[in-house]
Amino acid sequence: MKLLLKQKSVLPGFGPALGFTLFYLTIIVLIPISMLFLKTATLGWSSFWETVSSPRVIASFGLSFGTSFTAALINVIFGLIVAWVLVRYRFPGKKIIDMLIDLPFALPTAVAGIALTTAFSERGLLGSLLGSIGIKTAFTPLGIIIALTFIGLPFVVRAVQPVLEDLDKEMEEAAVCLGARRWQTFVHVILPILFPALMSGFAMAFARALGEYGSVVFIAGNIPMKSEITPLLIITKLEQYDYAGATAIATVMLIASFACLFIINRLQWWSHHRQEA
């Protein structure tokens, strides 16, 4: 273990601490995840391909990616506005709202799911309101987007907030002195600085939405080819004892997760680097 150290340290416990960390990580995360790939490998390429390219699976991929993307996009726009208002403006109850932003992290997804479904159902508080102007949300892709927006809400706000707080006010003042209008200052000076944080917030919201199950399953309606998200399809396959099918789809999901994780990592590094310079 000590060989891994870049620099000798007088602090004790590196060997045992790293050893335990790696052991626990391997047992709990790495071995179980590699099982998925192992199992997929035994399926054979053709049966794997057959499963993941079936119309129902493709439709679920399209739905999951499309709704996750839309929800993350909504969160970028409104997350930026919420972060802006929280950092820049003063109003009563600001602390409470700031606190509530983390609700989707802390509230179990099943609870969020039934609450959103009830609120947006035809007889619900918001559903009846939207229904009266002819918009149907519950049991449609729109409902899925609503649930996924809820799930991803904290990511953009929490990514943008610290950057906005650290933003050098003099820079904005310099821009106005040079004759920039407020929108020009925003577009040319503020937005480029927030961009990496916005992107990493987007990526995190997207990644989280892609795999989300609990909050979506109640509101989605789960009609194959129309409102059936990929995680639900995996459950359906499992309930039909189609382990091979479930595994194949799960592998695609897992690869997508890895890709997201990689992108988020790069974005965070970029965002961090940008701030240091």
């Binding site: 050098d168 003099e170 820079m171 003042e173 310099a174 821009a175 040319h188 000076v189 600085i193 310079a277």
Partner: peptide
């Protein structure tokens, strides 16, 4: 400005 306020 004192701290330059250059657009970084």
């Amino acid at each position: 400005f004192q701290h330059y306020a250059l657009f970084r």
